[in-house]
Write a protein that binds this DNA or RNA. Sequence first.
DNA 1: CCCGTCGATGTAATCGATTCCACGGAGTCC
DNA 2: GGACTCCGTGGAATCGATTACATCGACGGG
Lengths: 339, 339
Amino acid sequence: MASIKDVAAEAGVSVATVSRVLNDHPSVSAEARARVLAAVEALGYRPNAVARSLRTDQTHTLGLVISDVLNPYFTELARSVEEEARALGYSVIIGNADERPDLQDHHVRNLLDRRIDGLLVSPTDGGSPLMLDAARAGTPMVFVDRWIPGVDVPVVRSDGRAAVRDLVAHLHGLGHRRVAIIAGPAATTTGRERVDAFRDALAAFGLELPDVYIGQGDFQAESGRRVTEGFLDLAEPPEAVFAADNLMALGALDAVRARGLRVPDDIALAAFDDIPWFVHTDPPVTAIAQPTGELGRAAVRALVDRIEGRPGESVTLPARLVVRRSCGENPTQVQRSTT
Amino acid sequence: MASIKDVAAEAGVSVATVSRVLNDHPSVSAEARARVLAAVEALGYRPNAVARSLRTDQTHTLGLVISDVLNPYFTELARSVEEEARALGYSVIIGNADERPDLQDHHVRNLLDRRIDGLLVSPTDGGSPLMLDAARAGTPMVFVDRWIPGVDVPVVRSDGRAAVRDLVAHLHGLGHRRVAIIAGPAATTTGRERVDAFRDALAAFGLELPDVYIGQGDFQAESGRRVTEGFLDLAEPPEAVFAADNLMALGALDAVRARGLRVPDDIALAAFDDIPWFVHTDPPVTAIAQPTGELGRAAVRALVDRIEGRPGESVTLPARLVVRRSCGENPTQVQRSTT
DNA sequence: CCCGTCGATGTAATCGATTCCACGGAGTCC
DNA sequence: GGACTCCGTGGAATCGATTACATCGACGGG
């Protein structure tokens, strides 16, 4: 592969001049510029990003460590992150943690070793020492969706409390009183918050969330299935189940179907995170929708701000309830999905 | 960030010795090794992958350019690719082409500039000059799922012809005679092949595939919706529609639902690519399942073989039909999904 | 006792870029 | 006409690693 030296030789100038042309530095004569450009063309020269990064100490690359690529929420997030990053002149390297702290650390380390300019993370756990060290050492970092408390890193996320209250009102309005939740890992903020928000909202209606109605999941489908089976095995199963993410809702649907039961007749179901498929499931699933694309874009902007020396602010956007049919029919319901 | 020089100074040895310890070269005394390791620990030193790559001309990185991250088929593929690559000591950088040749080229160029060791591509078009040049120039490359004919690059894909024949037999058995297809872009191999396979299989049953029953999609949901609306507007709409991927099937479901029609009563639907959600859609969707994970792993193995100087072979694995209810009920049907 | 071998180590070149500094020539000002 | 600016250019240092080659000391064989 041709290097800058080959181009210099071909154009009959020094490597310094070639470099100047390539980085359009002003002080290059029109003639030299033309010769260099011709040589670049002739040799099919492309600058070596590795060498450039070594010298400039910049990779123009962002690292994104997401919790699970198989989760449509995170792929949508990844897509918007890459789009915004590209618009700002950055590339993105994605690491999939698969909800495993060890894999998360593997990717964080890998990205740090590659000297990415900044890191976007949705932590799968309470905080690996590795990531905390990196944050303390000054690696530009932004948390997205999930975060780690007590670290001085901007957080871009959505607040689902209001939407959860709407959901509980919806469930209550449909007559559900025994309601359960399939929670995410307690080590994650979203894992805890969604349970807390749900419990608080229930309390406002004078309802309790007993421990047997809190199933411990891990945000992946299999755990949703397992927890739901546990609920169905109870002497007094819940009337409604709220899955803290879309994959666990999928697992719950699997479990319900395996028992030959029906949603919502036998048990109501709602999920956090709305995805296109929820419109077409049997029944369509009532869900809490996050402004995913906007979150991804805001996170990139905050990160790039940090990288380029500007403050980089936290952002919290509201989620909203999208009512469909999985919690039961209620003709008087005001809010209703149009899609 | 500490460099190898700092470690050398801290340990009281030369950088060469540090490098030897880090790459466990045999000829280093136990004592020097211990001192270096202690210094590494004390400084929290991590080797700079950029510098290392520049020197060794290896990045231990694979590039993966997929057609669409929002397509669950490709995210599953990406996941298995990353897993296998990790097992073989490589990282993966994903580029999302979003079914756009220009974006595909952007990512290919970006990956090439980063001097990735090898490239895994599922081309969105008939072949960008950029990619062909790279292949000719000797960049280790493997096509996965889709490929470009006439290029000497291994292809890892699945053959759906038999499964398509099974599907057509299934449709025919259910009494469907007017069947249509939502095709992928003709510039892609999978776009063409699936139409050809479908047409051939229909011919075996004495059925035709008229042009009006071939809708041109682009493998994304919106096109599935548009094409399906076109079909429904025909004076004689098809009785069954075969979507050439899962996203176009989603679009088709949207279109059918928007008209207030039902699958399969008003129109039957089948899709290429099986995904977990198809079990729970209304109705569950009959689909052709590819061995996606195995494809991803085989592709990585072929690519790494090429990179490391071994041959690197093409692989073709069979797809299979998974019958559900979206084409109509048939109690005598032998093959039936259990999930 | 001397020399050859081998193991451990250091010096320095190298990868492909960027960029500081110096230099020569042209133009300007007084 | 001489001094001073600029402008365009090239030489060379530099980034952080790897590695060929040189060196040095210890050791074993003849």
